[in-house]
Amino acid sequence: MRSMAHIGAALTAIFMLSPLVILVIFCFSESPLLAFPIEGWSLRWFDKAFSDPQFTNAFRNSMIVTGAVGVTSTLTGTLAALALAKLPPRLATATAAALSLPVMVPPLLLGVALLTFYSTWIGLPLGLPAVILSHLVFTQPLVMLMISARMASFDHAAVEAARDLGASPIQSFFHVTLPMIGPSITGGTLIAMALSLDDFLVTFFTIGGGMTLPTLMWGMLRKGIDPSVNVVAVTIMGLSIAATLIGFRLTRYRG
């Protein structure tokens, strides 16, 4: 019975991890065929991908979107979390639930709804600005939730003590509140950025003609087997996993 549980957990862990490991291995494989055994190692797919102007362009677009989404959703999400801490508990719970609604809607629905809204009602041209606005919808609640979790154990007496010792409201925010919740804010930002970087569905419907890394990858997948797609996939995965892990580490998030 005990060993069954150990084996089950190990199999689950292998199941979760193996596709990612295989992807990394293929990136360094000499052969254009994605098959085992690996016959030789090389970096040629990295060379090929990184020298492709489409890749550079998509990478730049991804960075623009991710950066803008990270900064904006951090601002609005942090402000919302600070506000929630001031509201009466029941109102705060209701407001947090309302702001988190977008997380519960499948990305496909969000994507096509925003596409219809932009193009047939308000006449917003599709493109990077439209993508950035769309990403805010599902990244903002994440930042808010992560900072709210920190605010739940926040010692409000420390802020009052700062006021008591002569600090103005603004001074006490910068001297006490911000240093105390700072790591959570950075963590929330990184996770919001990871989510934005990896998003394919919402981006696909709102970007129009341009490309980010995921839509570039989609195009390559549709066209046929080009092994440099592995490099694009690894780039997306590496960046977002790194951001997520640093983010979780900073917020000391555990489940």
Binding site: I236, M237, T244
Partner: peptide, 11 residues
């Protein structure tokens, strides 16, 4: 957590 984000398409 490592496998949480990163690579919807890749997976």
């Amino acid at each position: 957590l490592v496998t949480l984000f990163g690579g919807y398409l890749a997976k």
